[in-house]
Design a protein around this nucleic acid. Structure first.
Lengths: 200, 200
DNA sequence: ACCTGAACACCGTTCAAGT
DNA sequence: ACCTGAACACCGTTCAAGT
């Protein structure tokens, strides 16, 4: 056919991106392939390589969008709470809800490994840092006498913890399936951690 | 060639399994392929399907071995400690050390998704339960007045937490790389959790 | 200039045919 | 009986050639 400029570069990029997202939502990471994406938008495989370097690059940009949506969600529950502990529990709830609602895209963020030649780009690291910053802000009021480093450590411990519980739930390793028990476990983790953290 | 019974079924199975493990150790999950395994043992691809149902089945058995090795390691540090808190911290240390030492095989245990038609077999679930049992035993002395369910929950919260920190470290999401900081974060998570847990 | 489509080097899985 | 090897239906990626 050789359809000349039916779509601009930008349009094409957006078409590829959202078609790929659709496939991930429906068939998960392992169901994604360049050929399926191309078929979905009515172009040839080769066309994808005009707007993305390769499949890894495409996945990176899908994941970036997922992190953006997650950050937006987490930001929304910011002002709703005066109690710092409640705020952190709420952040956690939002995170778990997000993971449960959109498991395939959420999982892909953590299933995708960066190769050694193509490391995580700075703009992508920034998106992750932004998420940790929210948690750090939440901890701040509970850690008045702590150094920045200590707060950063606590945020990573808590968030790693919540994340791990989500992962184990996803892989059915907890044999405590269901969103409710993930919420319960995470809330228990955070509550007890904070109780210990603020007891000093 | 048609090499008749050069090797027994059992021998063949073991050859496939350990050749596959070698490839995972060197090239990680994504580097594993049926054809590479076959080439490594000097057989044809088709032969693999005489001793394993498919690649998923092969992976399952590699993962089972990894869980066995991990359990052995964790069991070893059992009697060394009288203090329950120290024992849990030690279990955690062993876990992180194991993950750091053999990251590819460790990661494959959690990267492998069970499909909906082929669910996790009972004998495999048993291996996971056995690991949680060790953690539960560790918590027991610290939770005299707690129900079995509560102890089981605490074990899952703690272990999920440690696991999450390992995962985020593996994917460089924590930007707090290195085994030492993983140890530090995990120890902080457990210590504070237990402080809160035993404060009631 | 834009996109194709065929080629290349890979996959997992099956199964008739050879020894 | 045991294993092969060719076939099938897929992959990601490249790039000369067509419009």
């Amino acid at each position: 056919m050789a359809r000349r400029s039916d779509h601009s570069r930008e349009e094409l990029r957006e078409m590829v991106l959202s078609a790929a997202e659709q496939i991930v939502v429906e068939q998960s990471y392992s169901g994604l392939s360049a050929r399926k994406v191309a078929a979905a938008i009515g172009y040839t495989v080769g066309t994808l390589y005009l707007v993305f370097e390769n499949i890894d690059d495409l996945i990176l940009h899908i994941n970036a969008r997922t992190l953006d949506r997650l950050h937006t969600r987490m930001s929304e529950s910011k002002s709703n709470s005066d109690d710092a502990r409640d705020y952190l529990l709420q952040l956690c709830q939002v995170y778990i809800h997000f993971a449960a609602e959109d498991p395939h895209r959420w999982a892909m963020v953590f299933e995708h490994r960066f190769s050694e030649e193509r490391e995580m780009p700075a703009w992508y690291m920034e998106k992750i840092a932004r998420m940790f910053a929210l948690v750090e802000e939440g901890i701040q009021p509970l850690a008045k006498n702590r150094s920045e480093r200590e707060i950063s450590q606590a945020a990573r411990a808590i968030w790693g913890g919540v994340h791990g519980i989500c992962i184990l739930a996803l892989t059915n390793t907890l044999d405590a399936a269901g969103v409710d028990s993930v919420q319960e476990l995470s809330q228990s983790l955070i509550s007890n951690y904070l109780k210990g953290y603020t007891a000093d």
